[in-house]
Design a protein around this nucleic acid. Sequence first.
DNA 1: CCTCCACCGGAACGTGAGGAGT
DNA 2: ACTCCTCACGTTCCGGTGGAGG
Length: 400
Amino acid sequence: MQTNLNELFQNFIEKPSLFTKKEALSPTYLPSTPLHREKQIKQLGTILAPTLRNEHISNIMIFGWTGVGKTAVTKFVVNGLSTMAEKISAPIETIYINCKMEKINTEYRLLARVAEELGEKVPMTGLPTDRVYRTLFKTINRASAHIIIILDEIDSMDQASEGLYDLTRINYELTSGARTSIIGISNDLNFIDSIDSRVKSSFSGEELIFPPYNAIQLTDILKQRAEEAFLPATLQPGVIEKCAALAAQEHGDARRALNLLRVAAEIADRTGSEKIREIHVQAAEERIDTESISEVTRTLPKQTQTVLWSIFHLNEVKGEDLSTGNIYSHYSDTCRQIGLTPLTQRRVSDLISELDILGIITAKIISKGRYGRTREISLSLGNKHILKLNQILSEELFME
DNA sequence: CCTCCACCGGAACGTGAGGAGT
DNA sequence: ACTCCTCACGTTCCGGTGGAGG
C-alpha cells in the first residue's frame, strides 16, 4: 500500500501535465483583451470617460446572459479608467462587489460592504441601519473622490433595493466634491421592472445589453485562452469547435465553453492521454451536468431534501399525481420516519418553489375546477440524473 | 352563470443566533 | 448585565382564484 501510493505520486509528478497555465481557463481569468466585445467596451468607456474630468455621469445597468462577457468587459474598462486616473491624478475610486457570492441581499449588508471597501470597519451585524448609512456617508464625503461602485449579479439582492436607493440619494447630501455612481450587472432583463418604483426613478440611467456569443466568436475566445493554457499541439483539431458548438446551443455562454474545455482536458490528463480529443469533450459534457446538480442536491437543507425525496417517490408510484397536497402528506410521513419535525404546508409550498427555481423540478399552477387549484409538478431531469440524485438523497437522509 | 375546492401567495409576527454599545 | 440591532427560517392568518360541475 505504502509503496503503491508513493509510486502513484511519483508517477504523477513525473508525468508531464497537459496544462501550462490552467488559470487561463478559469471563468474569472481576465484576458489581456476581451474578444468580440469592441462595441460594448467603447460604449462603456464613453459613458465613464467624463469622470476623468471630474464630471458627473449617470448610473449604468448592464444586461445579458451568463458568460457573455459582462463582468470581464466591465473590469477591463474600469481597470483602464483607473490607470488613466492615476496617471493624471484624477480622484477616482472603484469598488467591485459580487452580490451573489458575497450574499449581499439586504440594505444593511450592501452599505456595510461598501463602507468596508472604503476602509471603514463596520460590524456584520448589530448596528442600526441608518447608523451604517451615516458612517458610509461620512467616509465618502471625506474621501471626496468619484466612487464607482460595480454591483455584479445585482438581481440576486431583491431585498436590498432600499440600499440601492441609499447609494443614489447619497449624492444629494454630499457636501465635498465626492460623488457615487453605480454600475449594475444583471442576468435578468426584468430586474429593473422588479425593483421599487421610487428606487427606479432615482437609479435610472444608461443601459447596455450584451448579446450572446455565436459559435465562431466562442471559437476565437477558446483559442485565445487555449494558447495560454496548453502546450501547442495538445489539442486535436475539432476539439475547440466542439466545445464552442455545444456552448453556443445554450445562449452562447463562454463560461460553459471554457468549463467544457477545462474538464475535457482534466479527463484527458487523468486518463493519461497526451492529447485532448473529442471524446473527452463528450465525457466532460456529461460530467459537468451531473456534478453540478449533485452538488446542489447534496448541499440542500434537510427539509428541502426530504421534500425532493417525496417528489421522486411519488413519481414512481403511477396513478398518483404530483400535486402539493399529495407531496405534503408523503413528506410528513417521511419526516416521521426519519425523525424530523414536519413543516407547515405553507412552508413546504415555498420549498417546492425553490426546487423549481433550481431547475430540479418544474412546477406549474393548474386548476382542476371543482377539485381545486394546485401546482402540477413534473421532473425536469433525465432518468440517469434522477437515479443519481435518489442515491444521494437516501445517503443524506437515511444514513447515520 | 354561479359555486366552491384545494390550494396559492402576501403580510405580519415569533424565535433564536450573532453582535454592538453603554 | 442589559437593551437594542439585523437576519434566517418558520408559523399563523387570510384574502384570492381558475375552472369543472351543478
